[in-house]
Design a protein around this nucleic acid. Structure first.
Lengths: 186, 186
DNA sequence: CGCTTTACAGACAGACCTGTCTGTTTATAT
DNA sequence: ATATAAACAGACAGGTCTGTCTGTAAAGCG
C-alpha cells in the first residue's frame, strides 16, 4: 500500500462511487465525506467535478489498456485470448454487482456539453474495437475479414456488458464468450 | 392530431427530454416550461418525477412491443424480419442524434432505489430477447439452437445500440445487421 | 525557531431541485 | 346562469448541488 494522501483518497473514493451509482448521482459532498477529507482539499487538487470524472476515466483506461496490450502480445492462441478476456469481464461483472462499462454509463448521461468526457469515451471504445481487431488479425489471413469479425466481437462484448447490467445476470457474458470463440474459430 | 391536453403535453415533452438528455439531467421545471403548463397541473397528473419516468418507459415499451409483434406475425422470411428490424434501429439512431436505448440509458443512472423502473427495464429487455428468439424459432428446427442464436442476435442488437450512441456513428448498426442476417442464414 | 506546504474544518453564496400550496382563470355541462 | 372540473400562474419550503472563502492545525526543513 502506498501513502494515503488526500488526492489519492479522493480519486479512489470517487472511482468507487462513480462506478457504483453513476457520475450524475454522486456529489462532491459525498465524495469528500467518504474520502475523509475537506472540500478545500478537493478543490486544491481538482478544479471541478468534471475534471475528477476525467481523471477517473483516465485511470480506468490506462489500467485496461495495459491489460489488453499484454493479451495481444501473449503467445497463446487467439481463441484463448478471447476466452480469457471474456472471462475477465465475467469476473468484473460478478465483483461489481453488475455495474457495467463506466464509459457507457457516463455517456448515457450527457447531452454533449463536456467534450473532454465524450472524447475519452470515444477513444476508449475505439481502443477496445482495435483490440479485438488485432486478435482477429492474428487468426485470419484476410485482413478485411479479420476486421469484420473483430467488429462483431466488439459488439458482442458491448452488448454483453450492457445487458448483464440491465438484467443483473451473467448469462449475456457467457453467451457472448461462446459466440466470440466460435466466430474466431470458423 | 388529438386534443392537446396538459397530461399529454407533459408526457410528450418529458419523453423528448428524457431521451435526449437522460432522466437525471432533466428537471420538472424544464419539463413544465417547455410543455407550457404549470407545476400544479403536473402534480395533478403525476405523483412524482419517478412516476413520470415510468409512464414514459411504458409508452416506449408499448409502441415497440406492438411493432415487434407485427414483425413476428408477418409472412416474410426470418432473415428479412431481422433486416427490417435492424433497419428500423438505423433510422431511429439517425433521427435521434445517436441517443440509444432509453431503458439502458435510464438504468445507467440507478443504484436500484426505484424498483419500478428497474423492473420495467428488465421486462423490456427480456421482451426483446424473446422477440429475437421467436424469429429464430421460425428459421431453425432445433429449438435450443434457435434460442442460442436469438440470444446472440440480442446481444449484437444491444451492442450496436450502445456503441452507435457512444461513437456517434452508425457503423455498429450496419455491422450488427449484417452479422445477424448471417447468423440466421447459416 | 521561523517558514512553507499541505491538509484540515466548515461557513457561505448562489443556483437548482422536488414537491406543496394558495388563489385565479377558463371551459364544460346541466 | 350556475356549478364543477380542469388548467393556469407562481410563491414558497426545505433540501441539495457546485464552488469559494476564511481560518486553523500539523508536518518538514533551513
Amino acid at each position: 500500500m502506498g501513502k494515503s494522501n488526500a488526492k489519492d483518497r479522493i480519486l479512489d473514493t470517487a472511482s468507487r462511487l462513480f462506478h457504483k451509482k453513476g457520475y450524475s448521482e454522486v456529489g462532491i459532498n459525498e465524495i469528500i465525506e467518504k474520502a475523509e477529507t475537506a472540500k478545500a482539499s478537493f478543490y486544491a487538487h481538482y478544479p471541478s467535478k468534471e475534471a475528477l470524472c476525467e481523471a477517473w476515466l483516465s485511470t480506468v483506461h490506462e489500467k485496461s489498456e495495459n491489460h489488453r496490450t499484454d493479451i495481444v502480445k501473449s503467445p497463446i492462441k487467439p481463441a484463448e485470448k478471447l476466452d480469457n478476456y471474456f472471462g475477465d469481464l465475467e469476473s468484473f461483472m460478478n465483483n461489481s454487482q453488475f455495474r457495467g462499462c463506466p464509459y457507457s454509463n457516463t455517456g448515457a448521461v450527457s447531452d454533449g456539453s463536456c467534450s473532454g468526457i465524450l472524447n475519452q469515451i470515444q477513444d476508449h471504445k475505439e481502443s477496445i474495437r482495435q483490440f479485438f481487431r488485432a486478435i482477429c488479425q492474428q487468426q485470419f489471413d484476410d485482413p478485411n475479414h479479420a476486421d469484420a469479425i473483430g467488429d462483431r466481437i466488439f459488439l458482442l462484448y458491448s452488448g454483453a456488458t450492457t445487458e448483464a447490467q440491465n438484467l443483473k445476470n451473467i448469462w449475456p457474458v457467457t453467451v457472448a464468450r461462446q459466440a466470440a470463440i466460435e466466430l474466431i474459430s470458423n
